[in-house]
């Protein structure tokens, strides 16, 4: 059973803003969905590692890429070829 306090905490961790009216709805829906997820408690087995998977690696070689203009084209705030972001501290 998750509470409104739990959902508020998750929303903060995930940086998704939810308002007070939505909080009750989300909490109610969360509990129904998590109840359904409890069926995973019945899963048996250890999920043995698959033998058909392998890593695909390559040399780290610099290649032509998008121009700086193209990369910045969709950024809403920019200055002198940099993207402006909110302050961290």
């Amino acid at each position: 059973m998750v509470t409104e306090h739990d959902v508020q905490h998750i929303a903060e961790l995930a940086d998704v803003g939810i308002n007070t009216e939505e909080l009750g709805t989300f909490t109610h829906q969360f509990n129904a969905i998590l109840d359904y997820f409890d069926t995973l408690d019945t899963v048996k087995g250890d999920g043995a590692a698959r033998s058909d998977l392998f890593n695909v690696l390559r040399e780290d070689v610099v290649e032509p890429s998008l121009s700086q203009d193209d990369v910045l084209k969709n950024a809403p705030w920019k200055e002198d070829g940099f993207i402006k972001a909110p302050r961290v501290m």
């Binding site: 940086d15 939810i18 308002n19 969709n74 950024a75 705030w77 993207i83 972001a85 909110p86």
Partner: peptide, 24 residues
Amino acid sequence: DGVRYGPATDWKKSWHDAYKDVRG
């Protein structure tokens, strides 16, 4: 997060507040 694309974040706000606003 509204930094590289999408609706602009308020970059004067702190990191979490700005993201929460734009994503919400």
